[in-house]
């Protein structure tokens, strides 16, 4: 039972971590919480589902297409909803982010209707029994894919020229410009990556729960925000740790208290962290 819940928690948590990385990277570079992150998750899922419904393309093609749509949407969002507001009061872009979130949700509702869509491809997933714990290969695939994307991101930030330039921009924009770094471009790249990861998370959950609908990003988006705060906003390893911990905590809450408390656990954690350790477990960055 315990192991089972932890395992389910890690699957959900790895998805939260992917979204939380988007929050934390964008916060790191702009000092902005992009509350439309959940809608990029939804956009990734819809793009993949619609493509697979319309054309018989390879699943991986559809997967990367969904990530790409989310990424481009994120870049456009930065361009029209955040860039013109830069340099003003920090609450202004926050309001803009909430506005963008409502707009995208409503737009999806208008374009695709309120109904749930099931995932167009039915995968055959085996259920494995390991030491009394049942694991589906789907869970393993999601967990593995999420870890893969996280590793890719960490390697990008740590070892590539543009990754380092993004970190430099997050630390000190003026000095970054003195190095010849184009700050606007780094911010756009950050939105591209963060949004692609959220898109990937959305696609995985669209498969896991076999449903895609306009408001699907709301709850995971808020939970991933909690996860980012838990780990320390602006801190990349923090987002990963926070996501995994949050996923495990809410599944333990669901398993040992009542499944009705599942969502409450995530937000209780958010409130407790803000009260007790506002910088998060691994320490965030102040802006």
């Amino acid at each position: 039972m315990l192991l089972q819940q932890i395992l389910n928690g890690l699957t959900a948590g790895s998805v939260y971590a992917l979204i939380a990385l988007g929050y934390t990277m964008i916060y790191g570079i702009l000092g902005l919480i992009n509350f439309a992150q959940g809608e990029l998750y939804m956009a990734g899922a819809f793009a993949t589902v619609l493509l697979l419904t319309a054309y018989k393309v390879n699943f991986f093609v559809a997967f990367f297409f969904g990530m790409g749509v989310a990424a481009v949407l994120g870049v456009i969002l930065e361009r029209i909803a955040f860039r013109p507001l830069r340099g003003g009061h920090p609450l202004v872009p926050l309001i803009s982010a909430i506005g963008a979130s409502i707009f995208l949700q409503s737009l999806a509702l208008l374009l695709f209707g309120p109904a749930d869509r099931s995932f167009p491809i039915q995968f055959e997933f085996a259920a494995l029994e390991i030491a009394g714990v049942s694991v589906s290969t789907l869970q393993l695939a999601i967990f593995g894919a999420a870890l893969f994307f996280m590793a890719l991101l960490v390697a990008f930030v740590k070892y590539t020229k543009f990754g380092k330039a993004i970190m430099a921009t997050a630390l000190d924009q003026d000095t970054a410009r003195l190095m010849g770094i184009n700050v606007d471009r780094m911010i756009a790249i950050t939105f591209f990556i963060g949004s692609a990861l959220s898109g990937a998370a959305g696609i995985m959950m669209a498969i896991y729960y076999n449903t895609t609908y306009p408001r699907m990003g709301l709850l995971p988006g808020l939970k991933a925000f909690s996860a980012a705060v838990l780990g320390g906003v602006g801190n990349i390893p923090g987002a990963i740790v926070g996501g995994l911990l949050l996923g495990v905590a809410e599944n333990l809450g669901a398993g040992y208290l009542s499944s009705g408390y599942k969502d409450a656990v995530a937000f209780a954690i958010l409130i407790i962290v803000l009260l007790v350790r506002p910088k998060g477990l691994l320490g965030g960055r102040s802006h």
Binding site: K164, A168, D172, T175, A176, M179
Partner: peptide
């Protein structure tokens, strides 16, 4: 090249990364 007041090194990046960023352009 402009060395700003107060040095402004990228404090959480490695010394080597700071040097590499100097040649970014």
């Amino acid at each position: 090249a402009h060395v700003p007041e107060g040095r402004r090194v990228f404090s959480s990046l490695s010394v080597a990364a700071n040097l590499e960023l100097g040649a970014f352009a």
